[in-house]
């Protein structure tokens, strides 16, 4: 790889723009494909450029063949993000776990007694109201939104924003009964069954644990499962690499 191309790739990463590095496994040349452009010394057949953009959408690296050559497409998508509403005990376990799993973590809680640096060392904390804070984050298809406060006046506004976004995972802490009441309130705000079906509640895979760290594992496990099921479906729809 040319040093200049590595620098370019690092610049795209820093700007959080998706980029795919295409390498000819026959000749060794390389070019970087972004949403609008390509850069590099490898002239790419148009169908390889299209395959690179498809690979970015399905987040799958792999080999394609074109013009009797093999090209390796390496996908570099912006990091996954998770917005955690409620700077509570479970969030204290979830924030470092999610960071280890590759998520950029934001913890949102307007209650400043909860959202403190000493409780969340090194974690990005936002103390605006959850709907404003989450709206500013613009959740996309690589963002998970998790509500943990149990308090409808904090959780519900966040869920409203999440439901209007492309967030790949939405989870809400609370019992089956709490979840039923929550869905009823959101229904009265005009959300239909299909939209409300996106909310995972009670949150997390059923692992059986009740300690905060165990619940955090169940949440992260569920988000991981939903993420990869979605990617597999997209890859299939796009014609898998």
């Amino acid at each position: 790889m040319k040093g200049a191309l590595l620098d370019r790739l690092l610049a795209e990463r820093a700007a959080k723009r998706p980029a795919a590095l295409v390498t000819s496994l026959n000749g060794g040349g390389q070019s970087l494909v972004t949403a609008e452009e390509t850069h590099g010394d490898l002239a790419l057949p148009l169908n390889v450029v299209a395959a690179a953009r498809t690979a970015l959408r399905s987040d799958r690296s792999g080999i394609v063949e074109a013009d009797h050559s093999r090209f390796f497409i390496r996908v570099y998508n912006p990091p996954l993000r998770i917005a955690v509403v409620g700077a509570v005990h479970i969030a204290q376990a979830l924030a470092p776990m999610a960071a280890l799993a590759g998520y950029e973590v934001t913890v949102i809680d307007p209650r400043q007694a909860f959202a403190t640096e000493s409780r969340f060392p090194g974690v990005r904390l936002v103390t605006e109201w959850p709907d404003e804070a989450l709206g500013a984050l613009r959740p996309d298809r690589r963002t998970a939104v998790v509500t943990l406060t149990h308090d409808p006046k904090l959780d519900d506004p966040a869920l409203e924003v999440a439901l209007r976004s492309d967030a790949f995972y939405i989870g809400a802490l609370g019992s089956t009964r709490t979840q039923a009441k929550r869905l009823h309130r959101l229904q009265e705000l005009g959300f239909n069954q299909e939209q409300l079906g996106r909310i995972h509640g009670p949150i997390g895979l059923k692992l059986g644990g009740r300690a905060p760290a165990e619940i955090a594992i169940a949440i992260l496990a569920e988000a991981t499962q939903v993420l990869h099921q979605g990617e597999a479906a997209e890859a299939e729809a796009a014609g898998a690499l």
Partner: peptide, 22 residues
């Protein structure tokens, strides 16, 4: 990984990147 590779390079070291392709 990529930033470390760039750092080694800026320190004047020879660097290689290995990638699983299939």
């Amino acid at each position: 990984i990529l930033e470390q590779a760039a750092r080694w390079r800026s320190e004047g070291k020879g660097v290689a990147l290995a990638t699983v392709v299939s």
